[in-house]
């Protein structure tokens, strides 16, 4: 009995695989490989189109432009790993930013306190999303579509629709826009914060039990529950942590844009989803790596940056991003067929 099955297994594992099957297997184990290849190829192409692309100065600018969407995409990755989607990322960030700025300017609060309250508000907003998803069992798409409107409206009502300029804000709130240079490479504290966020969340996802629960809940919530994973609690925590991460992005955005504007970054939601999807994380949950999201965010921004350096109409960036999204989801469908 056992000998015959192990014979079958050795025949199975020893069978010839076509190069295409081997590629499929590789992408299945390392879903971030294909976005990495796209990133490298696009870097080479943009450098050929305009050699200024590959300079340290350009890279510093590219990193600064990528920082905000990259920060939002961390929370988005957590939510998508649980087979959810978060359409309220931008709205939570903007609301949190407006609260931080108004508390400091109109409320006269010290910068760190205003920042912490804004951060707590963003965390609470994420918790609200999580409660609606886990307690009332509403689909994440509907919950966050609703809270997208709610938070956007509150941000506009609260701020009266007007921006608060950096000059009216304490240094602490603007600090993430400042930076330092290594050679010709200029980095801001905001870029550094985002790198630290990736390192910490990446560590948690890959090295701790909680990270495994996120994957398990996204892949098969019922099996996870039967195995003893507190599925609902993990889901609630994911939305709450995502809210906290959007709050940190809000702080970085004040420094980046030099003002707190209630209609800042309107395309944040779709950009963050695009980065996650291009980065190889499956919209069906349970599959993907955070490093892929960082690569995905870099791809989207390097397209924008590279094409503008090459003097190409910006609409081609939008076009190229659209094609990439469809290709990325197509690849995901294909590699999920590995049996």
């Amino acid at each position: 009995m056992t000998t015959s099955t192990s014979d079958a297994a050795s025949r199975f594992s020893g069978r010839q695989q076509s190069p295409l099957q081997r590629l499929q297997g590789l992408l299945h184990s390392y879903p971030w490989v294909s976005p990495l290849v796209i990133l490298i190829v696009s870097f080479i192409v943009f450098t050929i189109l305009n050699p200024r692309f590959a300079t340290a100065g350009s890279m510093g600018l590219l990193f600064q432009q990528t920082a905000i969407v990259a920060a939002l995409a961390i929370g988005q990755t957590l939510v998508i790993l649980t087979a959810g989607i978060d359409l309220s990322v931008g709205a939570i960030m903007v609301l949190s930013m407006m609260v931080m700025a108004a508390l400091a300017k109109d409320g006269g609060m010290p910068g760190p306190l205003a920042m912490l309250i804004g951060l707590a508000l963003a965390t609470g907003a994420g918790l609200l999303n999580g409660l609606l998803v886990t307690r009332i069992n509403l689909p994440p798409f509907i919950v966050t579509l609703g809270t997208l409107s709610i938070f956007t409206a509150i941000a506009l009502l609260y701020s009266g629709g007007s921006s608060i300029q950096a000059s009216h804000l304490p240094d602490f709130l603007n600090a993430l826009g400042n930076g330092f240079s290594i050679g010709g490479l200029r980095l801001t504290w905001g870029v550094l914060l985002v790198i630290v966020m990736y390192a910490v969340v990446g560590f948690i996802l890959s090295q701790t039990a909680w990270g495994r629960y996120v994957y398990a809940v996204g892949d098969d919530p019922e099996s996870a529950r039967l195995s003893g994973v507190p599925s609902k609690r993990v889901l609630l925590q994911v939305y709450t942590v995502a809210g906290l991460l959007y709050g940190l992005a809000a702080w970085a955005l004040i420094g980046r844009s030099g003002a707190a504007t209630p209609n800042a970054y309107p395309q944040a939601n779709l950009d963050s989803i695009t980065a996650v999807v291009i980065g190889g994380t499956s919209l069906f949950g349970g599959r993907g790596r955070l490093v892929g999201t960082l690569i995905g965010a870099l791809i989207v921004q390097s397209f924008a940056f590279g094409l503008s350096l090459a003097g190409v109409n910006q609409q081609y960036r939008v076009l190229a991003t659209g094609i990439l999204v469809i290709v990325a989801v197509g690849i995901d469908q294909w590699i999920r067929k590995v049996k």
Partner: peptide, 13 residues
């Protein structure tokens, strides 16, 4: 859990 490896499944939770 299909996406997790065998060891992770054995020790899940």
């Amino acid at each position: 859990i299909p996406a997790l490896d065998i060891a992770s499944n054995l020790y899940l939770a």
